[in-house]
């Protein structure tokens, strides 16, 4: 059968293996911890292959032989991989820049429609800075966010409306403008910036597509069904297109209701 390297990699994904299905919770926690540490998919699959091979020989469960999956993942990746890129940081910086450009660019649409300029007072600039800081710290917050979604996720989600309300309320206080910018140039220019950044992000995500798959070095599981190829491309296209599309939608509504 004629298969592409990517289709072949998909057929070797660890999630197809009966061992992983039988010990799903342990394997999930192990893979999540290594993912958070930016370990490439095939390397994670190799470590999981060792666990499966060892348990097959000893008859032990992963917990009996290797203990807690998160602790074991930290031990096995103690020194980190020297070849590891700063993938999570690159994507975060690209996404944070896009979100910031979208917030400023779409905020400029209403003054543009009214023939005014976009101006920011001190509180609004501080709110923008705070929001950017929260976005940039997401890679560090990812691990606690996954482990304690309520304790960390709720305050983090509450930050966005709080910052937005703070910025809007300060507008009514009549504070002096610290920064005044030409609205049309900003709206159009930042949309172009968002488009370029989205393309760079798409390239970055597509390049790591095979590295994203957690493939096993072990012999393929019999009759492993091949996952549809389109799914992975959706996973690349969706995050890249989300912000440009969001920009257009927000800008349209801002223009209509200006």
């Amino acid at each position: 059968m004629n298969t592409t390297p990517h289709a072949e990699a998909r057929s070797r994904e660890v999630w197809q293996r009966p061992f992983v299905k039988a010990h799903q919770k342990w394997c999930d926690d192990f893979v999540i911890e290594l993912r958070l540490r930016d370990v490439p998919g095939p390397v994670i699959g190799g470590h999981l292959g060792e666990v499966e091979a060892h348990c097959a020989e000893t008859g032990e469960t992963p917990t009996e032989a290797f203990g807690d999956p998160t602790d074991y993942a930290r031990q096995i990746d103690e020194d980190g991989s020297p070849e590891r890129g700063s993938g999570i940081w690159k994507i975060t910086i690209l996404s944070a820049a896009q979100v910031l450009a979208m917030l400023v660019g779409t905020a400029a649409v209403t003054p543009w429609a009214r023939g005014e300029q976009l101006s920011y007072n001190g509180v609004q600039l501080a709110c923008l800075g705070l929001f950017l800081l929260a976005l940039l710290s997401l890679p560090k917050l990812l691990s606690p966010l996954i482990r304690h979604p309520w304790a960390v996720g709720v305050p983090l989600s509450a930050l966005v409306p709080l910052v937005a309300v703070g910025a809007a309320a300060s507008d009514r206080l009549g504070l002096p403008a610290l920064l005044t910018l030409p609205a049309p140039v900003l709206s159009v220019g930042l949309f172009v910036v968002v488009g370029v950044l989205a393309f760079v992000e798409y390239r970055e995500l597509a390049r790591d597509l095979d590295d994203d798959l957690v493939t096993s070095p072990l012999a393929s599981a019999p009759q492993a069904p091949e996952a549809p190829r389109s799914r992975s491309w959706v996973a690349v296209l969706l995050p890249s297109c989300l912000i440009p599309v969001g920009y257009l939608v927000l800008a349209t509504f801002s223009w209509i209701y200006a």
């Binding site: 060792e50 348990c55 032989a65 290797f66 203990g67 074991y72 031990q75 096995i76 103690e78």
Partner: peptide, 15 residues
Amino acid sequence: IKGGTLYPLLARLEK
């Protein structure tokens, strides 16, 4: 010797 002790050591030797 548990797997949790042995395999991290083997990974270090390989690295």
